[in-house]
Amino acid sequence: MSLNRTELIAKIAEKAELSKADADKAIAGLQDVLIESLQAGEPVKITGLMSIERTERAARKGRNPRTGEEIQIPAGYGVKISAGSTLKKAVASK
């Protein structure tokens, strides 16, 4: 089972004793900060929870799965997310 945005907002509102509207604003704010920081190439580290950074992907050759034709895939960026120590310990203990 996964947690969707609505369920996440409800749980955060309950745990932090906030209204759902305030919890939604907090999630939206976090999303905006993550996007802005990663677009600028700045890593985001939430100690104990996670580290998020932008990674570069080199240009490479690939194949069109429908035709088998070789294609050139342009260079671009990806996102790398690493679990922090607190999160790793919490998951390992269950």
Rank of each mutant, 00 (worst) to 15 (best):
A92Y: 14
Q72I: 12
L18P: 09
P43Q: 03
D24S: 03
R60F: 13
S85V: 07
I12L: 02
A23E: 05
L87M: 12
E17N: 15
D24T: 03
E36C: 04
R54N: 00
S19Y: 01
S93Y: 11
K89C: 15
G68K: 12
A90F: 04
I73R: 04
L8T: 12
A75H: 03
T86D: 14
A16M: 11
L8R: 01
L30A: 04
E69Y: 12
E56R: 09
E70G: 15
E69K: 15
M50A: 06
V79G: 00
A59D: 03
A59L: 02
S93I: 09
M1Y: 01
I35L: 08
V44W: 06
A28F: 02
Q31G: 06
A75C: 00
S82Y: 05
N64F: 13
Q31P: 07
T6C: 04
E7S: 05
R60Q: 11
R54G: 01
I71D: 04
A23F: 11
A83R: 08
S82I: 04
N4D: 12
Q39P: 01
L38Q: 09
E56G: 15
I81P: 00
R63M: 09
G29N: 08
E70W: 06
S2N: 14
R63L: 11
E36V: 05
A16Y: 10
I9Q: 00
R5N: 05
I46W: 02
E36T: 05
T47G: 14
L18R: 01
K25C: 06
A92R: 15
L8W: 08
A83G: 06
K61H: 10
T47V: 14
G48C: 07
S93F: 12
R57D: 09
L49W: 14
L87I: 13
I81V: 08
I71G: 13
E69R: 11
A13V: 05
A59F: 09
A13K: 03
G29C: 09
A92I: 15
V33W: 03
E36S: 07
P74G: 06
I81F: 08
E56C: 15
L30P: 01
E56N: 11
K88Y: 03
L3I: 04
R66S: 14
A83W: 08
